[in-house]
């Protein structure tokens, strides 16, 4: 509820309409890239969006430093970030939902379970449902439309556990959440030196995670025959881990910016929302990974 007598309503701004133009150009450009192979407009749009976001965040930071943000406005930013993260939760929910649906319903039905088993057997008589799906229905029917992977990413057994990248990635990402929390704690107590160290460690862990994720993808494509095209296992695997990896990239970048801002002395023990919002995002990305580790890697 409103308690302030004045709420800061900003002057007219050129940024929003330029941001919308950038998104419009990106949508047009991405379509043109896929349909005609022309990437020019996509690059122009992306560059414009980056420029708009840079200036926009700079403006907001300067307004805050100038003391124009009341406590009430800061609460608006808190609500904004929280609901944005909620929308991200729903975005990942779609891909998790897809995974669960395929594993518990679609594949068993294709394999002949359920009310319509008599009909399914006419279409793919040789197909057996399994997870990870190594042989696709089209393969079972003798077509090479979709070829299943040669190897999968699941838990390799206790003896090979320590050569299994996802385990290391899990340890790295969970640790980074803890170090991020230490950084927050340090800033709450105005300990800038510790803040810089712990946040620096968090960013470094994020980068290591991304590097290992790249290694995993490289191995999948070059040695395991696991690609986007290897049936539903490859589709769900790359969709879930790919979007997660993209979010880790964003989160690492956000935290890196906050680290630089920390060095510039932007934060104080009671005003550090830029960092807090980024850290919420980071914890969210971490929780998603916990779900991924469980449902994509372990329980398979």
């Amino acid at each position: 509820m409103s308690t302030e007598s004045n709420y800061y309503v900003p002057e007219e701004s050129r940024l929003p309409v330029l941001g919308a133009l950038a998104l419009g150009l990106m949508a047009l450009g991405a379509g043109l890239l896929l349909n005609d192979g022309a990437s020019g407009i996509l690059w122009v749009g992306t560059a414009l969006l980056v420029a708009v976001m840079y200036i926009w965040f700079r403006t907001v930071i300067r307004e805050n430093i100038a003391g124009m943000n009341s406590d009430q406005l800061k609460r608006s930013y808190v609500w904004g970030m929280s609901w944005f993260i909620f929308s991200e939760v729903m975005f990942f929910a779609v891909f998790f939902g897809t995974l669960f649906y395929v594993r518990t319903l679609a594949l068993p039905w294709l394999g002949g379970e359920g009310d319509r088993s008599d009909m399914i057997h006419l279409v793919w008589p040789e197909f057996t449902a399994q997870w990870p799906l190594m042989e696709t229905p089209s393969q079972a029917a003798g077509s090479n439309e979709f070829i299943g992977p040669d190897h999968h990413m699941s838990f390799p057994g206790w003896d090979k556990m320590f050569h299994w990248l996802p385990l290391w990635n899990t340890i790295i990402l969970l640790t980074s959440s803890v170090t991020c929390h230490f950084a927050h704690h340090a800033m709450k107590h105005d300990d800038r030196k510790k803040f810089n160290i712990w946040l620096g460690v968090t960013v470094a862990l994020g980068i290591i995670f991304l590097f290992l994720q790249y290694e995993e993808y490289h191995e999948a494509y070059t040695e395991m025959g696991l690609t986007l095209e290897s049936g539903i296992y490859g589709s769900t695997f790359f969709m879930l881990t790919g979007f997660h990896g993209f979010h880790v990239t964003m989160g690492t970048f956000m935290l890196l910016i906050q680290w630089i801002r920390g060095l510039k002395g932007h934060f104080s023990s009671d005003d550090q929302f830029g960092f807090e919002a980024s850290s919420w995002y980071w914890h969210f990305v971490d929780v998603v990974w916990a779900g991924l580790f469980l449902f994509v890697y372990v329980l398979a």
Binding site: T98, Y101, V102, L105, A106, L107, W109, L110, V123, W124, L133, T136, P137, S138, A141, S143, E145, F146, T227, L228, E229, G231, I232, Y233, G234, S235, T236, F238, M239
Partner: peptide
């Protein structure tokens, strides 16, 4: 990009 979310031939499902 050749995924098979909605294609039963790759193990997906149009009903999904």
């Amino acid at each position: 990009f050749g995924t098979s979310f909605f294609d039963a031939a790759g193990g997906g499902d149009p009903v999904l």
